[in-house]
Amino acid sequence: MKKKILVTLLLVVVLSMLAAFAPAGEEKTVKVCVSWNEKVHSLIQAWQDYMEMYAKELEPTTGIKYEWIVNVANGDANLQNNNIQDCINQKVDYIVARAQDSGTIGASIKAAEEAGIPFITFDRASTSGDPTAHVGEDGYLQARSTAEAFAKLLKDNGIEGKCIELQGDLLDNTAVLRHKAWAEVEKELGAWTTVAEVPTEWKPEKFYQGALNALQANPDANCMYVASDFAFSSVENALSAVDKDAPTGDPKHIWIAADDINPMGYEAMVNGIIDVGTTWEAYSVSVLLVDTLNKMVNGEPYEKVNLISGRLATPENVQTLEYLYSTDPKYAD
C-alpha cells in the first residue's frame, strides 16, 4: 500500500513538473513581412527593434515564434508595391506595411487579400483599400493635443500668434491629418493666425528653405508649427539665420509647437526651443502591433482599428516620460 502511495505521489510530482515546464502549446513559427516605405529617421528602426524584442519576450508564454522579413522601399510607392508582391510570392503568413502613399497602398491590400494573407497597415492608414486591421497612433488626435496645448500656452502668455506652418508630405495621410487638426484648432480657439503654409515633403532641405523664406517674408511671425521634428536641425538653422534661435524667455524666442519628439526634437525641447509637442510612440505602438498579431494567430477576436494617443510633452516633463525612444542612446542621431 505504502509503495502504491509513494508511486502515486511520485507520478503527481512528475506530472506537475512536466505541466509547469512544458510550453503552453506547440510552438508555431509565423512569417511576417514588414514593408517599410522608407527609413528616414530612427523612429522606424525603433519600431522594428521594439516589435522584434517584444515578440521575443512573449515567445515562451505564447509559443509563437515570429520570423520577420523586412524590406524598405526608399520612399517609392511602386517599389513598395513590388516589395509586398515579393512577400506574397514567398507565401508569408501576415503582411505589415507602413504605406508610402496612403492612396496607392490599396492595390497591395487587394493583392494580399486575394492571396488570403491578412494585411495590417501600420502607422499610416490606407485611404485606398480596407486592410484586415490598422495599428498606429492617431495623427489627428496627436496634432490636436499639441495644437490645443499650444493655444493655451499662447493665451497664458498673452501672445497673439502669427504662425508659420511647416507641413509634411501631403501624400502621407498622417501629414494631412496633422494639417487638418492644426487648422481646426486655429478656427475653434482663435489663438493664432497661420500666415504661411510651407510644404516640406518631409525633406530637410525644404524644411530649411521653406522656414527661412517664410520667416523673411513674415518678419512679424512669432510662432511656428512643425509637423514633425525629425529634421529639426534644419528649422533651427533657419531660425539661426534670422537670429531667432532662442529659448523660451528670450525676447527673440519664436513659440514653437512640433510633433513627434524625435531625438532632434527632444534635444530642442530640453533646450527650450520647442515649447510643446505630442509624442509619436515607438514602444507602445510596437506592443500593440504584436498583441494584435498574436490575437490573429490564435484566432481570437481583435479590433479592426487599433490606435493609441501620444503623450503631451513640454520642456518641463519631457525628461520624465517613460519609454521615450528618443532618450535611448541607440537611436540618437
Binding site: 522608407e38 518631409w202 525633406k203 530649411y208 525629425f230 529634421a231 536641425s233 534644419s234
Partner: peptide, 15 residues
C-alpha cells in the same frame, strides 16, 4: 554646403 545648411544628413538628402 547642403549638409551645413540643414545641419544633418538624412536618407532623403539629395533626392
Amino acid at each position: 554646403i547642403m549638409s551645413l545648411q540643414v545641419g544633418s544628413v538624412t536618407p532623403t538628402s539629395g533626392t
